[in-house]
């Protein structure tokens, strides 16, 4: 028996070098990220000074659910991260497409099914890693940036580059056309959406790799006109 040990150990060592192939993943593997949303959470106060209810401050991407012309408040939560201090850098990996209910065909990008998600900050009072739309408090989010998922490549979109929003937000760089690619992309949104209709295609344009800023405070979105009254 002992005579076998040395050759066995040597064989093991040699074969160990031949352990090869794709890197194996463990059971927590969530797949390859389809998109990584990177940015910063900005706040005026320390987390404890806001008087939030007890719970972790988390980031969520909420996907508006569309059915016909109605906008519903059902949301699906994506990858979350816990924020403990400000400013906080974050990288959110997104591993799957938006829920089917979030897809719609936008009138300004005809023929392409898209879903639009808004990054927001909420207090996970239920400590379950999922934002409860009606019950958990939203304490901040992005004013002007949304995540758009296109089910397929869109047609090329022409738009007016002379608008003030465009020049301001895109730091002087303005293409006069763009195309949604299949998958995720970050976009600036300055159109006001009411009942599924955009006011202006020109207020909705690509953000490319611009960082996302999530602001703590009263949350409003440049995209949604929640009350359909012409205000955000």
């Amino acid at each position: 028996m002992r005579a076998l040990l040395l050759p066995a150990a040597a064989a093991f060592a040699v074969l160990g070098l031949s352990a090869c192939g794709d890197p194996l993943v463990d059971g927590d593997y969530r797949g390859e990220p389809l998109y990584t949303l990177s940015g910063t959470v900005i706040a005026d106060l320390a987390p404890e000074d806001y008087g939030w209810p007890e719970g972790e401050l988390r980031i969520s991407i909420d996907w508006a659910e569309w059915e016909g012309e109605e906008e519903h408040g059902a949301y699906d939560v994506e990858q979350l991260e816990t924020i403990t201090s400000f400013p906080a850098q974050f990288d959110i990996h997104i591993y799957h497409p938006p829920p089917e209910e979030a897809f719609f065909e936008s009138p300004w990008i005809p023929g392409t099914q898209i879903a639009i998600g808004t990054p927001l900050l909420y207090i996970d009072e239920f400590a379950n890693g999922s934002w409860a739309f009606e019950d958990e408090e939203v304490v901040g989010g992005s004013f002007d940036t949304v995540l758009v998922y296109a089910a397929q490549d869109s047609d090329v979109i022409e738009f007016d580059t002379q608008l003030g929003h465009f020049q301001t937000l895109n730091d002087g760089f303005w293409p006069d056309q763009f195309q949604l690619k299949q998958g995720y992309q970050l976009m600036f949104a300055y159109s006001e959406l009411c009942d599924g209709e955009l006011d202006s295609v020109s207020d909705f344009f690509p953000a490319y790799d611009a960082p996302v800023y999530l602001y703590v405070g009263d949350f409003w979105s440049g995209y949604f006109d929640w009350e359909c009254d012409g205000d955000d």
């Binding site: 066995a8 074969l15 352990a19 390859e32 591993y95």
Partner: peptide
Amino acid sequence: VRIGTDGVWQSFDTIGEAPPRAALQL
């Protein structure tokens, strides 16, 4: 005592992206 080698295959069911993996283990 035992020594051996295995082929390992990992496959996934996801609506995201997770390509299958294959490796040799000792």
